[in-house]
Amino acid sequence: MRNLAEKWAVVPDWQTAAIEVPGLAIRSLAGLSQYLVSGDLDAWSKVSGAPAKGVGAFGKAEGERYAAQVARDRMLVVSAAPLGIEPGWHEEGFGVTVVSAGLQAFEAEGSETAELIARATTLDPSAGSASAALSFAGANAVVYRHGDKLRIHVDRGLATYLWTWMETAARNIAAAAKG
C-alpha cells in the first residue's frame, strides 16, 4: 500500500516555528481563546459588555480582548484569557461557538509586512472593508492589525499550507529586497 503521508508537508512545531527574513518576522500565536458569536450582535453586546461590531479587514484591534467582524451577523471574539460565557445558544438571540482549537493564529511584523499583504490578497489594506474575512493566499482567513502587527486566523487544516506559502513568500520578499 502506498504511503500517502509523504505527500503532505510535515506540520511545523507551532511552539517554535518562526519565519524570519530582513524586515519580516512571522510566528504562530498560542493560547488565544477564540469564539464565533453569531446572531443578534447587539444582544451579545448587552450581555457581554463588548462592542457590537468587530474590526474589519486590516482594521486595528487593541488590547487582550477584541473582536473581528466575520459577517453581517457573525464575529470572531479573541481573548488572551477564556471568556466566562457558556458556549451554545443564548435566548437573548445569539450563539457562541468555541473555535480555539479550530483556528490557527499567526502574527507578522516588520517593514515588509505590506509586501506580504500585497502578495497574499488583492484587497487594498488602506481601503477598509466591513468584514475581516478575506482570501489570504487563497485561504479563507480573518485578517486584521493588532497594535503594529498583522494577525491572521485560518482554519487549522489549512495552517500548514499557509505556513509553507508564507515561507516561500518571505524568501521571495527577501530576494526582491536584495535586488
Binding site: 474589519g56 479587514a57 459577517a71 453581517r72 490578497t121 488583492t122 484587497l123 481601503a127 477598509g128 472593508s129 466591513a130 468584514s131 474575512a133 478575506l134 482570501s135
Partner: peptide, 17 residues
C-alpha cells in the same frame, strides 16, 4: 481581475464570489 461588490464587505476580488 474583476471586482464585485458585496453589499456588506464592499469591493472584493471576483474569486471570493
Amino acid at each position: 481581475m474583476q471586482l464585485f461588490t458585496c453589499p456588506f464587505c464592499g469591493p472584493r476580488d471576483e474569486t471570493e464570489f
